[in-house]
Design a binder for these strands. Structure first.
Lengths: 255, 255
DNA sequence: GAAAGAGAAATATCATATCTTAATATCTTT
DNA sequence: AAAGATATTAAGATATGATATTTCTCTTTC
């Protein structure tokens, strides 16, 4: 197991410690790794060495290295393993972790449900459009399977809600655009209710029809039709969510 | 300065250390804070105490508390101040920090420029639509000022590119939807070039015209017109970016 | 010869102690 | 009352050691 060259060369603080004493040492390490990532000098899988290695090579204490690794780990940039052959290496992206981070940020910013649902509409309408262009036979089969599951859960509020979230995500996946998929996942994390007080059998049936029509449009390769339908569909969902907020203070009661 | 009650009560590891020995102690602390956030038991501004306080109250060492704080800090959940009256408190959301985090994730996932530009189109078309609905006089004044700056920089590639990014962001701000603004910021972080090899005077003039028309549409409250124009505009940008990728391997050479 | 188990090595995690640096509060002086 | 000096507070950084866990390796056994 070789250490990545970036960490072999040690720029060291040599003499001119005046460089930027303002930032903490650990923050400097973090910044370096991040910059190296953007400059393609580091890529997923690269080995950075262990806590002690890094500390020794950079001429800092173990705690500094540890602080930096904790931060990089939290940012999803490195993964740390314990034991022989352990240590830190650059992580492969993890959309799920990221979705949670976004959810936290939206929570902290006190974002409104209406804002989130609008953004969701932007993401989902394009997802529908691209799905109609790029969906494979496998994607369509998955969508149909979810339709089937949904139609059998018309009276089970919790199950139908879960199925709905999964269906929408499957549409985003069918667009074959990972950015859209990640964004939708993040937004659902915040916007999708676990209980669904206004979901009656009639509403569920209506939703199910919309989903079925959407799959038809995707299957017959009608991007603008799919976009229009999804747009109306999400607007409807938005209206219901905003209405719900009056009665149900807790937007996010899952997790 | 009082400590938040969540951290006064100390569940402690008391006796049954069997609870969940798998997760590290610091990870447990992080999970607790995050859950408390979602359950509204913590809100921005709440004081958590200092490193030593937390360690003492939870019966762990300072390092454990420190690890947890580093992680929470990286996630943008807490802010830490040094000195008297220092310590950790729940942060207010920071879109900028978050935009960087998303950019890193997209980098790690090896996302394609085309995917990013498509997502950007989704976000920006809706932003234009909503801007036409909600822009204030101040928003429009800012847009016009940016138009002015841009028209004076038609031959300065770097300046014109910077101005373009800022203009698009200003449109997103004018939508008064923070989610859209954050998403655009993230995507620009990855997609927006610092050099712009294909940007000639003619192209710049064309872009400038599009921007000017967009402001007109926003000012006369024409949401669907603004949406259409932005859609075409971003499609054009996308085409140029994708073409550039052939000649210019480094997508992101800024930062 | 292969599978199973015991031991060894590597490495993060947890803990304690001490010193330094930065920010704030408070007191003193003018 | 304003300005500066001093004290206090708390994080930042260093050092060292103990513990636990994972992985490797060697031995034993069948």
């Amino acid at each position: 197991m070789t250490v990545h060259p970036l960490f072999k060369e040690l720029p060291q603080k040599q003499g001119l410690a005046s460089s930027s004493r303002s930032a903490t040492l650990s923050a400097q390490l973090v910044a370096e790794v991040r910059q190296a990532l953007f400059e393609k000098r580091l890529k997923p899988g690269d080995f950075l060495g262990g806590e002690q290695d890094i500390a020794a090579r950079r001429g800092v204490s173990r705690i500094v290295a540890r602080d930096a690794l904790r931060t990089l780990e939290a940012l999803g940039i490195v993964e740390i393993k314990v034991g022989a052959r352990g240590g830190a290496r650059i992580a492969y992206g993890d959309p799920q972790r990221f979705a949670e981070a976004l959810a936290v940020q939206l929570e902290l910013a006190g974002t409104d449900v209406a804002e989130i649902m609008d953004a969701q509409r932007a993401v989902e309408t394009l997802a529908a459009e691209l799905a109609a262009e790029h969906a494979t036979a496998g994607d369509i089969a998955r969508l149909k399977a979810l339709l089937e599951t949904g139609s059998r859960a018309l009276d089970d509020v919790a199950a139908f809600t879960r199925n709905g979230a999964e269906f929408h995500l499957a549409v985003a996946d069918a667009s074959h655009n990972r950015v859209l998929a990640v964004q939708l996942q993040s937004l659902q994390h915040v916007s999708w209710p676990s209980r669904n007080p206004t979901l009656t059998h009639d509403v569920a049936a209506h939703v199910q029809t919309a989903h079925r029509d959407l799959v038809k449009l995707i299957e017959m390769r009608d991007p603008s039709g799919a976009r229009r339908l999804m747009n109306d569909h999400v607007k409807m969902i938005r209206a219901r969510r905003v209405a719900e907020r009056g009665t149900n203070q807790a937007i996010n009661d899952c997790c």
